[in-house]
């Protein structure tokens, strides 16, 4: 687990840093997606989440869900390309789950990736996480989780 300015960033996950989302490669080859603890801290308590329809084909960095907090609306973007195959209904019904457990019960969507091998190079994982997020937080002027 990397901890950067108080934000937990598990080092077994893959991160699309610009989009501030994580991706977990599951045993069946699908990808689970959610917001990072850093993204949650920036947003504050989520009050609404609306996913795209299951079955939609998405490109990397395309919107898969739209969330709202403190009157701000913003997209959650796909960390990799593929088909949207599941959404986490409990988190859509009660978006504060995302704040409470961003890497567990607060996951948002599952994608069947179609270019994982090519696109995973654009994601950050393992020992690189801390430095990359430190730089992002610095650029964002972020104080800490």
């Amino acid at each position: 687990m990397a901890i950067v300015r108080g934000c937990n960033l598990p080092d077994d996950l893959f991160y699309h840093v610009d989009s501030n989302v994580w991706a977990r490669l599951e045993a069946d080859g699908t990808i689970t997606v959610g917001m990072t603890s850093y993204a949650c801290s920036l947003a504050g308590q989520l009050v609404a989440a609306t996913p795209k329809k299951i079955g939609k084909d998405v490109e990397q960095k395309q919107t898969i869900c739209t969330v709202e907090s403190g009157k701000w609306v913003g997209p959650i973007k796909a960390p990799v390309s593929g088909k949207l195959i599941a959404i986490n209904e409990p988190a859509i019904d009660k978006p504060t789950l995302v704040n409470e457990d961003p890497y567990g019960h607060g996951w948002l969507a599952k994608i069947q990736p179609n270019r994982w091998d090519a696109e995973k190079a654009s994601l950050v994982t393992g020992a690189d996480i801390a430095a990359v997020f430190e730089a992002k937080m610095n650029a964002d002027g972020f104080g800490g989780c």
Binding site: L42, A43, G44, S69, G70, K71, W72, M137, A139, D140, G141, F142, G143
Partner: peptide, 14 residues
């Protein structure tokens, strides 16, 4: 842009 504000906290920006 966030770089115009040097701040990422959404409530602080509001």
């Amino acid at each position: 842009h966030r770089s115009d504000l040097a701040c990422a906290d959404m409530q602080a920006i509001s």
